[in-house]
Amino acid sequence: MKNENTGIVYSADVFKHFYFRGQKVFLSDFIVKRYDDTIILNERYSIEKKVNGEIFIKTPSYVGNFKEMPVEYKKDLNVFILEFYLNEIYSTDKSTFNDKTKNNNGSRPCSFWNTYYCVGVGLTQSAAIAESTASGDLINCEKLGPAEAVPFTEGTVWATAYCCNK
């Protein structure tokens, strides 16, 4: 987040991609600007939270109340990005990464975008677990829990989740 004379600029600092309708997407490729209660993406898309709580959206294909927006227009990646930032900005859950904030299992909360999964495959359960926890890419990452068997693999594939805020 960066203040500018023209509003607040938001960008994501993530190293993990996600798939949207089969397309590989990096959230860090998108920059949005916020002016008061309006969030703008690439000058063609905007979303606004009205005082009464209604959400108003403008896209090249639709202008109007977000709840009334036809489903086919919500399949637009830019609409998803706007909705994501709207939810992040107006979320009342302000979990932070600090020692005072812990989950039920004792680990700190981690966003989806910073969660990294290390998968291990082995002929035995022990070999699979060992492989799932032995990655050189996990420097400065926090293990989020124990290794877990991947369903339907007879215990030969295990996954371990890590939080990597790099």
Rank of each mutant, 00 (worst) to 15 (best):
T153F: 00
I39L: 12
I57A: 05
I89W: 01
G155V: 07
S28M: 09
V157I: 15
M69R: 06
A161W: 00
T96Q: 08
S91R: 10
G136K: 12
I55M: 13
Q23C: 10
A128S: 14
C118I: 10
L123Q: 13
Y35H: 10
N114T: 02
A159W: 00
V25M: 09
Y116A: 02
F20K: 03
G120V: 14
F26H: 06
T156V: 12
L77Q: 05
D137Y: 05
L41K: 05
V119N: 03
Y10W: 11
A161C: 04
C163Y: 01
K24I: 08
I8L: 10
E4R: 05
E4D: 08
E54Q: 08
A127R: 14
E43F: 03
E142A: 08
E72S: 08
N114H: 11
D29F: 01
V63I: 15
G22H: 04
L77D: 03
Y85K: 06
S111I: 11
F80T: 02
F18H: 02
D29C: 08
F30E: 11
F15V: 06
F15R: 11
T6M: 10
K24P: 07
L123S: 13
A147I: 09
D13E: 09
T160N: 08
A159T: 07
T160I: 07
K166P: 15
